[in-house]
Design a binder for these strands. Structure first.
Length: 869
RNA sequence: GGGCGUGUAGCUCAGGGGUAGAGCACUCGCCUUACAAGCGAGUGGCCGCUGGUUCGAAACCAGCCACGCCCACCA
């Protein structure tokens, strides 16, 4: 580690800080202190006059560890929570995890498979015990990651979707829905995964375009049907045509013989059939197709299942025992042999449903399952957003939400799995059904339904089950409805809409959250999705270890435009790390020079001081508004530029001069003030480094509960802002000259400054320091003369300057300025423009013209001042 | 088929009727005593294409081209 410089200004404090910020040295220590101090603990009874702000965390699945998407999600929530905490709200951020039924069961089954075991080898009880063990290990890992990220969650409220309290909530709402007739059991065609061996809800099926073959089969002389799933014809129980289709009208009501089976099936007329598609005749397999199932219902057709739960053909005959994908070509071959195949099979791209968890092709299957009747629940969920009681951010996401809640099908909630909440329904010896309440015993001798609930069922209760529901707890009173729900847009349907349904239902119409904040997915630097197969996955812990939690958070939030995906890259994390280091060093400099935050702001300050204070107020207001509107990327950008480009590059540099004279004391206070507020504004985003620096700077206990800065309009000072902008232009112009002339940045150059009454005159010392200009001494001979900002800078470059290079440069700038004058002149001379353009625009263009004209004067003067070659 | 959205610097993205922006990358020069994880100065864009509206269009409108995501009972 580099030793800090011993160079100190008068009044310097004893400071022992390394020259590079080392996150690993402070983050763990700070987090522990925060927790033990109880800063994150919510108390519903404390100061009831204060407003409350609550967020329940989207519970990570216990399937593994947190990825970048979680890190983004948590960073956003922590930023919201920390800002509110600083604003004085009673904040509750409730942590927890999700048992993730099918996903976790699959993970543990894979583990077992490595040992050559299946879950059936263990038996249900032992298997579930095994999953609990997995949950313990995986869950511990996740909690550890949350601490590393700096999540300011209230650990005393940690919940799990399958712990006792949440189990009771599940039992309670199930019972209520059951008694209200909103949960029922029915035999229907559902999505079935032949590998997971369970039913799936509609949204657990992912559709993807796949190449298939459309086979046309001649069922009779007059009837040709087309199918991509020839094997299902074994279960056909009708052929359907459109009722108005003249070609087939005479056949409706007749029977034809189904090839390969010898069965006779009827021709029925059904509106569903599109007479324009193919031949206009369609095979009907009620047991294996959702549409056909409905046609079958309408026409009272038998349903013949030809496959078992694993997708193996069970229909008696030559295909029995074949897998469905083997049976397909076999059936086509058999039909071809019989001369039933019309022409050739046609390549055909069509959408195929896959199991979300294992990618197996889903098989529609008729079975007895439990359903939630969503009609009234979905209506309420839609209305809450329509009414404006719940806001969706960004609003462009709302149509998606409506599209789904307004067209929702009944929700299949039973799963043929072992890991999950067991369905609280018991069956009697004679098939009676009972749903006892959570505190009631089922009748003796009855048996419980073997299935478990869809994992999203318990997730849907999360905003109130975590707060103690069904009991009327102080938490529930104080923190429900929650303030914001922060999650990726990918689970808008899975989770958000269902929380809305159950929240409104269970809490008598009170919405589960006021604002829905949707963020995008984390992607790589090419905008590609992170996936193991691409090898572009970044582990948040890796970044935290190498760059720090703050840098990781800053990288994510800096990319988080509303609703947009968030690309991240190694170099950007480095940039964020560099930014934290910049803050560290700026504060280190300030401390070495005695900056402090004691007492009122000095009454006598320079224009430079007034400028930075004015800018600070503006930035404070901007950042506050941006965070209020969930504009994390812009808030980060604003702070980044203020801190780096204004505070560090200009104020600190100019302050160096002030610290060396009678203005030192005032400057120390201003420096302290700027850093104090800046660090507070940054704290919600980068909590660790700001805590470390702020507590050192102020001597206060923590920034976690320090008041959130408010913009002070009295400190706004337009005049000083303009003055410093002028100073910046002057300095930049001379730097440009130095650079173009090949003068080394550190090289001292003697110069004479003629201010000609410029308001910048009092800042000569600062200008000289920034430009490394020394006072003219004996023998001073200006070799270059730069008229700029109303002043003239005469430089002794200790040798001839490259006149040709300078002339080229000035000519180029001059040409640009002249073009500008021409354009502006044309514009301002345009009658239509003058008549119609708004006052402000005209004024702006006049200012542009004036500036360009001034530039021409300046450049011509500079050219004239050039020594002749 | 329906819905939403995108096309701006080499890359990732802001912006949005009135001077084209940022980060990173790139070029040149610097260990200028807070910081080389740094400093200074630069290079780089017919803002997807074609029309229209307008005094003025990268922005608004129409059409086209190319992408992306979501939904859907596409035999």
């Amino acid at each position: 580690m580099t030793t800090p410089s011993n160079e100190r200004g008068p009044g310097a404090a004893e400071v022992d800080l390394p020259t590079q910020y080392q996150p690993a040295d402070v983050e763990g220590r700070l987090y522990e202190r925060w927790v033990s101090a109880g800063y994150f603990s919510a108390d519903p009874g404390r100061d009831p006059g204060r407003p409350a702000y609550s967020i329940v965390i989207p519970p990570p699945n216990v399937t593994g560890s947190l990825h970048m998407g979680h890190a983004l999600d948590h960073s956003i929530q922590d930023t919201l929570i920390r800002r509110r905490r600083m604003q004085g709200y009673e904040t509750a951020w409730v942590p927890g995890m999700d048992h993730a039924g099918i996903a976790t069961q699959n993970v543990v089954e894979r583990e077992l498979a490595k040992e050559g075991l299946s879950r059936h080898d263990l038996g249900r009880e032992a298997f579930v015990e095994r999953v609990w063990k997995w949950k313990g290990e995986s869950g511990g890992r996740i909690l550890g990651q949350m601490k590393r990220l700096g999540d300011s969650v209230d650990w005393s409220r940690e919940a799990f979707t399958m712990d006792d309290a949440r189990a009771r909530a599940v039992r309670t709402i199930f019972k209520r829905l059951f008694d209200d007739g909103l949960i029922h059991r029915a035999e229907r065609i559902i999505n079935w995964c032949p590998r997971c061996l369970t039913a799936l809800s509609d949204i657990e099926v992912e559709h993807a375009e796949r190449d298939g073959e459309l086979v046309s089969i001649r069922y009779s002389d007059e009837v040709v049907v087309a199918t991509t799933r020839a094997e299902t014809m074994l279960g056909d129980t009708a052929v359907a045509v459109h009722p108005d289709d003249e070609r087939y009208r005479h056949l409706v009501g007749t029977e034809i013989e189904l090839p390969l089976t010898g069965r006779r099936i009827p021709v029925v007329a059904d509106e569903h059939v599109d007479p324009g598609f193919g031949t206009g005749a369609v095979k009907v397999t009620p047991a294996h197709d959702p549409n056909d199932f409905e046609i079958g219902r309408r026409h009272d057709l038998p349903s013949i299942s030809v496959m078992d739960e694993r997708g193996v053909i069970t229909a008696a005959g030559p295909f029995q025992g074949l897998d469905r994908f083997e049976a397909r070509p076999a059936v086509v071959a058999a039909l071809r042999e019989e001369g039933r195949i019309v022409k050739e099979v046609r390549p055909y791209e069509h959408s195929v449903g896959h199991c979300q968890r294992c990618s197996t092709v889903v098989e529609p299957r008729v079975s007895l399952q439990w359903f939630v009747k969503v009609g009234p629940l979905a209506k309420a969920a839609g209305d809450a957003v329509r009414d404006g009681r719940v806001e969706i951010h960004p609003p462009e996401m709302a149509p998606r939400y409506f599209e789904w809640v307004d067209n929702m099908h009944d929700w299949c909630i039973s799963r043929q799995l072992w890991w999950g909440h067991r369905i609280p329904v018991w069956y009697g010896p004679d098939g009676e059904t009972a749903c006892p309440g959570p505190d009631e015993e089922p009748p003796a001798g009855w048996t419980q339904d073997p299935d478990v609930l869809d994992t999203w069922f318990s997730s849907a209760l999360w905003p109130f089950s975590t707060l103690g529901w069904p009991d009327d707890t102080p938490d529930l009173k104080r923190f429900y409805p929650t303030s914001a729900l922060v999650t990726g847009y990918d689970i808008l349907f899975f989770w958000v809409a269902r929380m809305m349904m159950f929240g409104l239902y269970a809490m008598d119409g009170v919405e589960p959250f006021k604002q829905i904040v949707l963020h995008g997915m984390v992607r790589d630097q090419n905008g590609k999705k992170m996936s193991k197969s691409f090898g572009n996955v970044v582990d948040p812990l890796d970044w935290i270890e190498r760059y720090g939690a703050d840098a990781t958070r800053f990288t994510l939030l800096r990319g988080a435009n509303p609703g947009g995906d968030v690309p991240v890259a190694e170099e950007w994390a480095q940039g964020s790390r560099n930014f934290c280091n910049k803050l560290f060093n700026a504060t280190r400099f300030a401390l070495l020079n005695g900056a402090h935050t004691r007492g009122d702001l000095p009454g006598e300050i320079t224009a430079v001081d007034a400028w930075i204070l004015s800018r600070l107020q503006r930035v404070t207001g901007e950042v506050d508004a941006l965070l209020e509107g969930f504009e994390f990327a812009k808030a980060c950008e604003t702070l980044y530029h203020f801190a780096w480009d204004e505070v560090c590059d200009w104020y600190v540099e100019l302050a160096k001069v002030q610290l060396g004279d009678e203005r030192a004391e005032a400057t120390r206070r201003i420096l302290g003030e700027v850093l104090d507020k800046l660090l507070r504004l940054l704290h919600p985003v980068i909590p660790f480094v700001t805590e470390e620096l702020w507590t050192t700077l102020t001597g206060a206990e923590t920034v976690v509960t320090a008041p959130w800065p408010a913009a002070d309009e009295d400190l706004r000072d337009k005049e000083s802002e303009e003055l410093v902008e002028s100073l910046q232009r002057l300095v930049t112009e001379v730097r440009r000259f130095r650079s173009d002339q090949g003068l080394k940045p550190g090289q001292k150059v003697a110069a004479a400054l003629e201010w000609n009454g410029s308001p910048l005159a009092p800042h000569e010392e600062g200008v000289r320091a920034l430009l490394r200009l020394t006072a003219p001494e004996d023998g001073f001979a200006a070799t270059a003369s730069l008229p700029v900002e109303g002043a003239v800078v005469r430089l002794d470059t200790a040798g001839a300057i490259d006149v040709a290079a300078e002339r080229r440069r000035l000519d180029k700038d001059l040409a640009a300025a002249r073009k500008e004058v021409e354009q502006m002149g044309k514009k301002l001379g345009n009658e239509a423009f003058m008549a119609k353009a708004p006052e402000a625009v005209v004024a702006k263009n006049r200012a542009r013209l004036a500036q360009a004209e001034a530039d021409i004067v300046r450049l011509e003067a500079q050219l004239a001042a050039l020594p002749s070659a």
